[in-house]
Write a protein that binds this DNA or RNA. Structure first.
Length: 430
RNA sequence: GGAGAGAUGGCCGAGUGGUCGAAGGCGCUCCCCUGCUAAGGGAGUAUAGGCUCAAAAGGCUUAUCGAGGGUUCGAAUCCCUCUCUCUCCGCCA
C-alpha cells in the first residue's frame, strides 16, 4: 500500500511512476473521493465535537443538580445526523482503502523502464553452460527413464500440474531443501522457522496477495470463521510474523528462512510450461525473508540475492542475475532481481529465484513497525526471496548433471545429504 | 467438543455510565543533588488521522481501553456477537 500522504501531496508524480510499471492510476476517481472525504470528515468531526461538548455540559450540570432539558433539546437531532454522516464517512474511507489496496508499489529509481520480460536487464552471469557430447534430454525424460518421476500417477491422484517423485529423486528433493536450509542458517545468519501452511485473509492482505489476486490462491473453507488459504509462498507467514507489531531497534535485522510447500492455482497460465516440474500447483521452496531498517533495505537486497546465488554456486549450476524492469515486477516489489538457472534442454536460462525489496509497501499494510532512534514508531522495510525453489533446482540438476547413459551425477555438496550417493541411476533391468 | 477465567498504554496494573486518553508502578528521556557506585528530588513519556500554517514550530480537533454491533445526550465501564489467551475435563498425532 502506498502512503496516502504521498498521493495527497504528489499525485502527479506517483501516477507517472506507476505508469512506468504499466499501472494507470485512476487520478480522477481518487481526486473525487478525496474531495468528498475532506468535506465529510470535517463535517463528521464538527458534529462529534459538538456532541462531546454538549455531553460534558450535561455531566457538569447534573453534578450541580441543574436542569439539563434545554441542552437535551439542543442535542436531540444531533445523533441522527451524526450517525448518517459517520456512515457516509466510513463508506468513503472504505472506498479509498479499496482503491489504495489495489495499487502496486512504486518502482525504485534504479529499476529499468520496460514493459515485460524482454526489457529485463542482465546484471551478471556465473558459470558456463556445459557443452554436451550427446543429445541432452529434458528433466521429464531423464526422470521418467530413471523410473523416479511419475506424472501419470500424480494426475490420477490429483490432476494436471502435480507430480510424484520416488526413490532417489524424492530423496534428492529432500536433500536439496535440507542443504539450502543448512547453508542459510549456518552461513547466512537466518533463523529457521516452521510455519503454518494455511493462513487467514489478513495475512494475505498484509503481503499483498489479497484483495487483488485471490484467483491465484487455493481457498479452504473453514465454517463460519471464514476461509483459510494455502500459502502461495512462505513469504506470507514469515513476513506477517511482524504484522501489528512494534519491534525493538536492536532486534533488526530479522532474518527468517523456512522450507514449505507452496500452492498456486496458476489460473491464467494455461498452456504455459505444461510439461514437467517447472510450473506446478504444489512445489517446495526455501524462502528467505528479511525485515530491516529502511536505511538498509537496498544493501539487504544485494545481500539476499547473494545468499540465493550461493546455493547455485555450491551446486555448480550456471546462472545469471536479472534486474526486472518496472513492467515485469510483482505487485508489492519496489525492486526485484530474478536469478535464472541454465537449463540445457530448453537452451535457456529459467527463473529459479526472485528476490524483492518491498520497502514499506507490505509494512504499511501490516502495520509492522519498529521504534526508531528517536523512539518513534516507524514502518519497517520487508524483503523476500527464494533461496531457492526446490523443484526447479531439481530440474536444473537433472538436466545439467545428466550423463550419456541416462544417469544423473549428484553435485558434491549434496552427497552428504544423500548418504554418500554420487549418482542416480536406473535399476538394472533383467 | 464441554466448563470456567481473562484481554486496558513499551511492560505491570487500577478503573462498573460524565470530572478518563485513562490512577499508580516499572522502564525510558531530560534536569537537579550527591558523586566511587548506590540511593534521592523534579519534569516529561501512546498511536493514527483531519483542519489550519508557505514550511517548520504551533494552534484547533477527531478516533482508538481485543474486534464488530447495540443502548445512551454521554461507554474502558451496560447489552449482544465474534476472535484470541489461560486453567480443568474429553478426544487425538
Amino acid at each position: 500500500m502506498l502512503d496516502i500522504q504521498l498521493l495527497r501531496t504528489n499525485l502527479e508524480n506517483v501516477a507517472q511512476r506507476l505508469a512506468l510499471r504499466g499501472h494507470a492510476f485512476p487520478v480522477a476517481d481518487f481526486n473525487l473521493l478525496e474531495a468528498e472525504r475532506k468535506t465529510i470528515q470535517t463535517r463528521t468531526q464538527e458534529l462529534q465535537a459538538r456532541r462531546n461538548i454538549a455531553s460534558k455540559q450535561i455531566g457538569n450540570a447534573k453534578n450541580k443538580g441543574e436542569d439539563v432539558s434545554a441542552i437535551l433539546v439542543e442535542v436531540a437531532d444531533l445523533g441522527d445526523e451524526l450517525k448518517q454522516v459517520e456512515t457516509h464517512f466510513e463508506k468513503i474511507q472504505a472506498q479509498l482503502l479499496q482503491l489504495l489496496l489495489g495499487i502496486p508499489n512504486l518502482p525504485h529509481d534504479s529499476v529499468p523502464e520496460g514493459r515485460n520480460e524482454a526489457d529485463n536487464r542482465e546484471v551478471r552471469r556465473w558459470g558456463a553452460p556445459r557443452t554436451f557430447d550427446f543429445a541432452a534430454k529434458d528433466h521429464v525424460t531423464i526422470g521418467e527413464n530413471l523410473g523416479l518421476l511419475d506424472f501419470e500417477t500424480a494426475a490420477k491422484l490429483s490432476g494436471a500440474r502435480f507430480s510424484l517423485l520416488q526413490g532417489g529423486l524424492a530423496r534428492l528433493h529432500r536433500a536439496l531443501a535440507q542443504f539450502m536450509l543448512d547453508i542459510h542458517t549456518q552461513e547466512h545468519g537466518y533463523t529457521e522457522a516452521y510455519v503454518p501452511y494455511l493462513v487467514n485473509a489478513e495475512s494475505l492482505h498484509g503481503t499483498g496477495q489479497l484483495p487483488k489476486f485471490e484467483e491465484d490462491l487455493f481457498v479452504v473453507p473453514h465454517g463460519e470463521q471464514g476461509n483459510y488459504y494455502l500459502i502461495p509462498t512462505a513469504e506470507v507467514p514469515l513476513t506477517n510474523s511482524v504484522r501489528d507489531q512494534i519491534v525493538a531497534l536492536e532486534s533488526l535485522p530479522i532474518k527468517l528462512t523456512a522450507h514449505t510447500p507452496c500452492f498456486r492455482s496458476e489460473a491464467g497460465s494455461y498452456g504455459k510450461d505444461t510439461r514437467g516440474l517447472i510450473r506446478q500447483h504444489q512445489f517446495d521452496k526455501v524462502e528467505l525473508v528479511q525485515i530491516v531498517h529502511p536505511q538498509h533495505s537496498y544493501a539487504a537486497l544485494e545481500q539476499l540475492v547473494g545468499h540465493a546465488e550461493k546455493i547455485l554456486q555450491k551446486l555448480a549450476l550456471p546462472y545469471r542475475v536479472m534486474v526486472l524492469c518496472a513492467g515485469d515486477m510483482g505487485f508489492s516489489a519496489a525492486k526485484t532481481y530474478d536469478i535464472e538457472v541454465w537449463l540445457p534442454a530448453q537452451n535457456t536460462y529459467r527463473e529459479i529465484s526472485s528476490c524483492s525489496n518491498c520497502e514499506a509497501f507490505q509494512a504499511r499494510r501490516m502495520q509492522a513497525r519498529f521504534r526508531n532512534e528517536k523512539g518513534k514508531p516507524e514502518l519497517l522495510h520487508t524483503l523476500n526471496g527464494s533461496g531457492l525453489a526446490v523443484g526447479r533446482t531439481l530440474v536444473a540438476i537433472l538436466e545439467n548433471c545428466q550423463n550419456a547413459d541416462g544417469s544423473v551425477s549428484i553435485p558434491e555438496a549434496l552427497q552428504p545429504y544423500m548418504g554418500g550417493l554420487d549418482r542416480l541411476a536406473a535399476p538394472d533391468k533383467k
